[in-house]
Design a binder for these strands. Structure first.
Lengths: 165, 165
DNA sequence: CCAATCTGGGACTATTTTAGTACTATTTAG
DNA sequence: CTAAATAGTACTAAAATAGTCCCAGATTGG
C-alpha cells in the first residue's frame, strides 16, 4: 500500500536515536534497549546502515555505532535506499525488457515520473526533521509548501512499534 | 521498496485502455486480450474498480465495463486507494496505540507528513496523464514543477508486465 | 421461456516478500 | 589471552501479494 517496511521504520528510529547524541558511540545492545526493538534485529539493521555508509562503526571492545555524518546531511531518500534498495514505483521501471503492451504503456512512463517526483521530495527531508529536531524552515521545501493549505493537518497518531525483546 | 503492487499497475493499464475508448463498453475478456493479462486477474481487478466506483458496468449479454467518469476526473490517488486501501506510509500511522518509544517518536509524525505530501501529489495526477493522453500543462502541477530542474530526465524503461494467459 | 453471455462475490492456493533469529568469524582494549 | 564488540551469512517463520476457480445473479436474443 505504498508503505515503507517496518524495518525501514525501525532504522529511522535508530538513526534518530543516534542523531540525538551525535558525540557518543552507542552499541547495538544499547540502542536495542533504548528503542525496545529486538537485539538481533537492531544488529542487522545497523550492519545494513553501515554498509550504506549512513553510520560509522568501530569494532572490538568499546566499539559501537555513530552517525557517519551530521543528521542534516542524511536524507529520507538515502535511508529508503539503504534499506529497500533504489526505489521504483513499478516493477517495469527496473528492468529494460519490453512488455507486450506497447499500446498502453505511456503508463509506465507516467508512473516513472511520479516516482522521480516523490523521490526528489524525499531528498529534501533530512534525518534532522524526521527525528523531530526541526529547523523546519529551510528544508522540507516543496512538501511543506503543499502541506500548508486549505485543509487542516490531521492529528497524527503516535508510533506503535511492537516487538518482543 | 515504496513500490505500488503489480495489481495496481495492471489496474492502471486497464483504466488506460478504457480511457482510450470512452464511448465503447469493453468486456473483461476483451480487456484481458488487449492487455495480455490473465482473464481471471483482469476480472477481479475490474470488480474491484467497480466497487470503488471508478468504472461502471452493465451485466448480461453485451455487458461490459467503461469508465465511470472522464479520465481527467480520476486521480492516481483514487486508483491507489481503490486497490490498496487508504495509504499509510508506516504501520504506526494506522492504529492509535501508543508505542514504547515515546522518546524518539517525532519520527512517526514526520513520516506522516511525508505521507500526506505524497498523497497530495498523487491527487494532482489524472488518469489522462497516466495514460499518456497528456494535457501535461494544467495539472501535474507541483510534481511537474519539481521535475523541471537542473537534472535531466532519465530515459524511462518501457513496462515489463509478464503474465501467462 | 430458455440458452448464451456477461458481471458479482467469495473462497481458495501458490508464490513472493518481509521479519526475525542463529551461528560463526573478526577486531580490539586491557 | 580473553571479553566485548562488530561483520557476515545462512536459515526459518510469518505475512502480504498474486492468481485461480466456482457458482450465483442479470440481461438479452431467439
Amino acid at each position: 500500500m505504498l508503505r515503507i517496511s517496518k524495518l525501514t521504520d525501525y532504522a529511522t528510529v535508530l538513526l534518530a536515536r543516534l542523531a540525538a547524541e551525535p558525540e557518543r558511540q552507542l552499541t547495538a545492545a544499547q540502542l536495542a534497549a533504548q528503542t525496545r526493538l529486538g537485539a538481533a534485529t537492531v544488529s542487522k539493521l545497523l550492519k545494513q546502515l553501515h554498509g550504506s555508509a549512513l553510520v560509522s562503526s568501530t569494532r572490538g571492545l568499546h566499539g559501537g555505532y555513530r552517525l557517519a555524518r551530521p543528521a542534516a546531511d542524511i536524507s529520507a531518500a538515502q535511508i529508503l535506499d539503504a534499506l529497500e534498495g533504489p526505489m521504483a514505483l513499478t516493477e517495469c521501471a527496473q528492468h529494460t525488457h519490453q512488455c507486450g503492451i506497447e499500446s498502453t504503456c505511456g503508463v509506465g512512463r507516467a508512473w516513472q515520473r511520479v516516482n522521480i517526483a516523490i523521490r526528489r521530495s524525499l531528498q529534501e527531508i533530512s534525518l534532522l526533521e524526521l527525528a523531530g529536531m526541526g529547523v523546519q524552515t529551510t528544508r522540507f521545501g516543496a512538501l511543506e509548501r503543499q502541506l500548508r493549505g486549505p485543509r487542516e493537518l490531521p492529528v497524527p497518531a503516535v508510533s506503535t512499534r511492537t516487538e518482543k525483546p
